[in-house]
Design a protein around this nucleic acid. Sequence first.
DNA 1: TGCATTAGTTTCAAAAAATGAACTATGGGA
DNA 2: TCCCATAGTTCATTTTTTGAAACTAATGCA
Lengths: 116, 116
Amino acid sequence: MMDESCPGKVEPILEILDSKWMLLLLFELFNGTKRFGELRRKLQPISPKTLTDRLRLLEEKGIVTRTLYPGVPLHVEYELTESGQGLQPIFAAMWTWTQQFGESLQERMDDRRMAP
Amino acid sequence: MMDESCPGKVEPILEILDSKWMLLLLFELFNGTKRFGELRRKLQPISPKTLTDRLRLLEEKGIVTRTLYPGVPLHVEYELTESGQGLQPIFAAMWTWTQQFGESLQERMDDRRMAP
DNA sequence: TGCATTAGTTTCAAAAAATGAACTATGGGA
DNA sequence: TCCCATAGTTCATTTTTTGAAACTAATGCA
């Protein structure tokens, strides 16, 4: 499973998760459907441009849907798709790792060593 | 588990995985101890500066160890620590997600929708 | 008429990240 | 003496990302 071809298979998902704000954004969406302004307030001080950029990427990748509700004032709702919900185990694994090893994340370069 | 405090707990690990080349680098190290030049060749066309930056970050975080072997010419080996090995489940979860949903990653904005 | 609200877009500047080319240090061997 | 190989470092430049400020569109209501 962890063979040679694996990096190429995992990188597409890192392209999604890599960018600033993306994690926080996905966490908000795990807690249910959200409107643009709502997300903007929760992720303060994100700029509307960056928020739009992130949401468009998620939309392109099929991870969220965007639903427009006409009327005055109009509003828009963002919701995770099935593949969006499917990201949860990845976050769960990160959470587990942090539980196990997070303590040792303080900066320290003390264990540089020489061969015996 | 997926509560309010979760993003903050998961972000430290994203700071590690986020940067360019990092995934490829970790995959190389999953396959065993590697020397600097070996990594450089495998990750072509990475620059030596970037490779050094990545390795230093992993070292600081306690994810790899660096061992210097004196002699002429000297050489250096990089090896995953226990916490480095512990990253495998995260990659495994990414791999699983890609298996399940990777097909739908093609660009497409066709499912933008209006409320009924 | 013009204000209010929602959800953006546009344009340009600033900051951060990555790169490329050239350089350092070590020390044995031709 | 100079060259080889290893493992980097340094500094200037380019590329990529992010951000701030101001603007647009739709439309019911005072």
